[in-house]
Every structure is written in structure tokens, then in C-alpha cells.
Nucleic acid binder design. Structure first.
Ligand SMILES: [Mn+2]
Ligand SMILES: [Mn+2]
Length: 295
DNA sequence: GTTCTCA
DNA sequence: TGAGAACAACGCTAA
DNA sequence: TTAGCG
């Protein structure tokens, strides 16, 4: 089976079930990519990809892939990035077209993870994210912590919005003006996390050891770092329900939205009807004043 | 999913 | 001819 | 330094 976008792509095993419980085949996954590409591609632009591949579906063996396979067609964009530890360059894939998305989907890349910088300004984070991870099943504590964080960021007059991770937690993003450093964002994220832990001691933990977290929500503020990544907005997750990392309105979160409501099936019609609430706001934050005060 | 290597 | 392996890796932070 | 984490 062959699909033609900017380039022709041969689809192998289009009927293979990648998400059996959700009844999503590879062809269905590619259809999702085609439908959401206008909203997904902007979040992948100029960002080296960390991919997670599931060649035999979400229940099969998986592996991370950073280096672009040598057999990829030459129109797949590769960007060399030096890796200190490996003492070599990694040829990262950067998705710059629908055809790239389709080719990666055929490779069973189910998850697309990206960092906080782009190739345009590789040392400057263009957003801050608070990663809220529940320790035990149940979304209500996550919602409660997120809404408290919302109140705080509102009082600081910083633009921000939530997105489901597609797994069990939530991320709160602050889009930044250009010119910030990771040193500044580290000071800020840590101060906010410590503040929330004090404000909600029964609900929030900053404890690194899982066994010491009890049933609290872990504010994973170290996840905001130079070489760290988070699931990209509108990327699928390798979950039973084929959930999607989905930006939400605060009103939706306050009204009881749940991560499992946003899936490969529900997200395309949502985007067609309501558009992308993350793209809708173009307000950028400056942390300079707050960081100067904290420092 | 695809390629490569070793039986 | 076919089975099996490889396909990432690092900063953070507490101890 | 390393251990444990994501
Ligand atoms: Mn998370
Ligand atoms: Mn996390």
C-alpha cells in the first residue's frame, strides 16, 4: 500500500492492530497522523525527536530511537547533535512534513518526545513545564494540584495552560519569551514546586524516591532540563485506550476533564471543532523579574 | 520494522 | 534460511 | 561518587 504526501511512502502491514483494545490498526494510526498533522507539526518543528517504537503494537517489545535509521529515505530530515557521553554525534530525526509523520508511523513510532529548545536557539528554553505525576492511580489529586498551580501562576500574571500527558498525569506549560536560560528556569521551577509543597503538604511531594512519595502527587520539576524531553502535544501514547497528550482549557480541567477522554478517536474531531487551545494563546512570559527576586 | 550477523 | 540482536543515555539531586 | 528516577 502506498500513500503520497510530499513524498510517496510505502505502508507495510496496514491492517496490523497497534492498539488492539481500541481497535486501532496501523492504517488507523496513519489516518490520525494525516488528520492532526496541521496541529501536530508546529510542535515538532526544529525539535530533535526521541521516538518510542512498538513494531508489534502497544503490548509488544518497544525501544527508544534517537539516531535516524540509515535506511530512512533521504527526505527524512536528520540533524547532527553532539552527545558528550557517547562521544559522537546523534543523527536526530526532525519531522518537517506530513510525509515524515507517515513514514515514522509506518515504522511504528507511537510516541514522539521533544525537548524545551529548538535548533534555532539550542541553549534557550522556549517554555517551562511542570510535570505532575500521580504516585497511585486516580486523577483527582492531580487536578487539585494543577488548579492550585493555576491559581499561583495567575497571581504571578504568567500565561500558562495544562495538557494531559496521555498517561496518568498532567503537564502545565508556560510559553516563554526568547532569551531565557535553563539556570533561570531551574530557579523558578524549584521555587514554585517548594511553594506548592508547603501550601498543599498532604497532596504534593518533591520526594525523589518513589517509595517515599506515599499517595501524593509528585511535582517532577527536574524534568525541566536542558536534555530532557516530554511527550509532544497531540502525540499518541502506547496505552490500552490509545490516549493522546492533549492541551486543555483551564475551564475544562476545572469541570472534570479526564485523560482517558482524549484519544486517537476523539482528538481529531475535537481539533476540527475547537481548534488547538495551546496555539490560540500567543502570550509569552518573562521570568526575569521573578527570578531576580528569588535569587 | 528493518537490517545485520552468525549458525 | 532463519533465529537473534540492536535500535537511548543523562541530568538532576540526595545520600 | 553513586544510586535512583523519569
Ligand atoms: Mn509525567
Ligand atoms: Mn515525570
Amino acid at each position: 500500500m502506498e500513500l503520497v504526501a510530499e513524498h510517496p511512502v510505502t505502508i507495510t502491514n496496514p491492517d496490523k492492530l497497534l492498539w488492539p483494545e481500541a481497535n486501532i490498526t496501523k492504517a488507523g494510526y496513519i489516518q490520525y497522523m494525516i488528520e492532526v498533522s496541521p496541529w501536530l507539526l508546529p510542535y515538532l518543528r526544529d525539535r530533535p525527536l526521541t521516538l518510542i517504537r512498538y513494531p508489534h503494537g502497544v503490548h509488544g517489545h518497544s525501544f527508544y530511537q534517537k539516531n535516524c535509521p540509515t535506511y530512512a529515505p533521504d527526505w527524512i530530515r536528520r540533524v547532527p547533535v553532539w552527545s558528550d557521553e557517547r562521544k559522537d554525534v546523534i543523527q536526530y530525526v526532525v519531522a518537517d512534513s506530513l510525509a515524515s509523520l507517515i513514514w515514522l508511523a509506518n515504522q511504528a513510532c507511537l510516541e514522539f518526545h521533544v525537548g524545551f529548545t529548538t535548533l534555532v536557539r539550542p541553549t534557550q528554553p522556549d517554555s517551562v513545564a511542570f510535570d505532575l505525576d500521580p504516585t497511585v492511580a486516580g486523577f483527582e489529586p492531580v487536578r487539585e494540584v494543577a488548579l492550585a498551580l493555576h491559581g499561583l501562576l495567575d497571581r504571578l500574571n504568567l500565561p500558562h495552560l495544562p495538557k494531559t500527558s496521555g498517561a496518568t498525569g498532567l503537564q502545565v506549560f508556560i510559553p516563554l519569551q526568547s532569551g531565557h536560560t535553563f539556570e533561570q528556569t531551574r530557579i523558578f521551577t524549584k521555587a514554585v514546586a517548594v511553594y506548592l509543597e508547603r501550601q498543599l503538604p498532604n497532596l504534593v511531594t518533591l520526594e525523589r524516591l518513589t517509595k517515599n512519595r506515599g499517595t501524593k502527587v509528585y511535582i517532577d520539576f527536574p524534568q525541566h532540563g536542558a536534555s530532557r524531553t516530554l511527550i509532544a502535544p497531540y502525540s499518541c501514547r502506547a496505552t490500552k485506550l490509545a490516549t493522546v497528550s492533549t492541551p486543555l482549557l483551564w475551564s475544562e480541567l476545572a469541570a472534570g476533564a479526564l485523560p482517558e477522554q482524549f484519544t486517537i478517536t476523539t482528538v481529531p474531531p475535537r481539533l476540527r471543532k475547537q481548534g488547538d487551545c495551546m496555539a490560540a494563546s500567543n502570550d509569552l512570559a518573562s521570568l526575569r523579574e521573578i527570578v531576580r527576586f528569588l535569587d
